[in-house]
Design a protein around this nucleic acid. Structure first.
Lengths: 196, 196
DNA sequence: CCTACCGATCGGTAGG
DNA sequence: CCTACCGATCGGTAGG
């Protein structure tokens, strides 16, 4: 039975229980830490206790593996953010909730759900197209949140949204767990971006 | 005569006039566009009209080439930002001037002076150490500017500075020349970060 | 600056 | 899941 068949029946195709699920989790961790080009199939195999070539029983190609992980990561982040936003009424509170949820996902050192959003440049062209498309859909979530903010008329909402998203994505470049929590940082960002 | 000898005499060691200067400029452009790992010595050679191996008459290694370009880029950016800041008196005006100068350097598509600040993860360990050390020194400039701002006491200046720097660095990830100028974006960022 | 090459590593495959 | 391998590409070098 193919994976697609199993998915159609709603079975557990690659939770942590399956061998494939274990391999996906291991690969996500390595990609997140070392990037696309910095992670070889042999690296993933070694972490999984097999040779690199053996992985091709579970995946079609390195590219397909990376895209699958990226899509799953954004699915997870999207769900968490949508839930956090839905729990708030005030538009500014929604903004802070969205920032907090995104940063919690992105800054969790054990997170397998957020490989590298920002490696677009080190990926093959065909992969980049798939990543950008999925990311653009993800960003619709923030488009809606920003649209609901009572911003002064003179503020360019497109620029505002781009700055906010790149601000959130770039935190992972310098954040180190310890002094500040993801929520602390989200609160500060939401404070900076509060302009009324 | 070695390069070091020439430098000691203050000669033009690698301006655009020298062959070495041409090669550095070409390499900087490629690194900026495709990243460290995405740019091979053969790529650089091809763009310079020679074979990859021939480049080793002018440089010691790919690593040393990359570090040299990175240091030169930060030297140039530092000088421009310091000059822009010195032309202002008001601390908030200094902040905006610094943002504008940095973004002009970083968003100029023909800029050879700003390879990739953000590829730290795709670089060998020894290179990363050199890059981080130089970058930390670069960031002292912003430490001084932020220290001079009359921020409310409750604002964490360390977090504020980290957010500002990563905000500025991440603009290059989405900026496309056209609608907005680097100064437009700098003005918006300075506006967001104005909290008194 | 080129020819000709080195050892290492890469993604991926055939056959068992 | 392993053995054994493919062709491609990498940074770098010797010798001219």
């Amino acid at each position: 039975m193919s994976r697609t068949d199993a998915q159609a029946k709603g079975e557990d195709t690659d939770g942590a229980g399956t061998r494939r699920g274990q391999i996906l989790a291991i690969a996500a961790q390595l990609f997140a830490r070392k990037g696309y080009r910095g992670t070889s199939m042999r690296d993933i195999g070694e972490a999984a206790g097999v040779l690199g070539g053996s992985l091709y029983h579970h995946i079609k190609s390195k590219d397909a593996l990376f895209v699958e992980l990226h899509h799953a990561a954004l699915d997870g982040a999207e769900a968490r953010i949508a839930a956090a936003v839905a729990a708030q009424d005030d538009p500014w509170a929604q903004l802070e909730a969205a920032c907090g949820a995104l940063l919690e996902v992105q800054l969790d050192p054990d997170s397998l759900t957020m490989p590298m959003m920002n490696d677009f440049r080190e990926v093959p062209d065909a992969v980049r197209v798939a990543l950008v498309e999925r990311r653009d859909r993800f960003e619709q979530l923030f488009r809606a949140i920003v649209a609901a903010l009572p911003l002064p008329a003179k503020i360019d909402r497109s620029l505002y949204r781009n700055l906010l998203l790149s601000q959130l994505n770039s935190v992972a470049d310098w954040y180190r767990p310890g002094r500040l929590t993801p929520r602390d940082i989200a609160a500060q960002i939401a404070h900076l971006y509060r302009h009324d």
